[in-house]
Amino acid sequence: MNGMTFEAIAARIAQVCDEAMVVRSENGQPFVRVPAAALPRVAALLRRDPALLCDALMDLTGYDRLKYPGNEASPANDAIAVVYLLFSQQHHHRVMLEVQAPRALCSVPTVSGLWPAALYFEREVFDLLGVQFVGHPSLERILCPDDWVGHPLRKDYLYPAQYHGVPHLREGQHFDGAPRRQGDPEPTPTPAPTKKGHP
């Protein structure tokens, strides 16, 4: 028993959300990109529509589009993306949703009312990427300690120099090319390679 095709699902989503956009990822996987404001009604449609009935939230994750491969053409696009992987256990079809939120005011409506599994997933995305899920009952850090500063999976995250007085490097320890830490001086730009030495 096979469910709806991706094109049919995308057309059904487009009926409730005009701005829905079908995008194909680098490896050919199609997904639907919807604006954050339309997420509650798109999610409710996917969850409750008898023909769609995506009752399983397989995964909810996110990524930072800053310095994202293939993103060079639009350098202004430094949004945080939240990805929803949905599956219908009855119809056996899958659909991938993506929502983008601006970096500074990063808020996305919660879907934990529709899929309780999103409670932990959203806490993880909040912890590591700093996305505020509006309506989540207890949006706390889940992996990092509660008093952690910053969101580590953001591409512009600066590693802390110490935590609770314990420095991140041991005495005398030095690594070439280690990530920059808070308080480190600005990196000096690498000099352009010269042709000297390459006869």
Binding site: C144, Y157, V166, P167, H168, R170, Q173, F175, A178, P179
Partner: peptide, 20 residues
Amino acid sequence: NSGGPFSKWSYSVLNGVDKY
């Protein structure tokens, strides 16, 4: 002992249990 393979790239790993 020292954080091992995580001491260079990880932000979350303690660099040796002897700190505690």
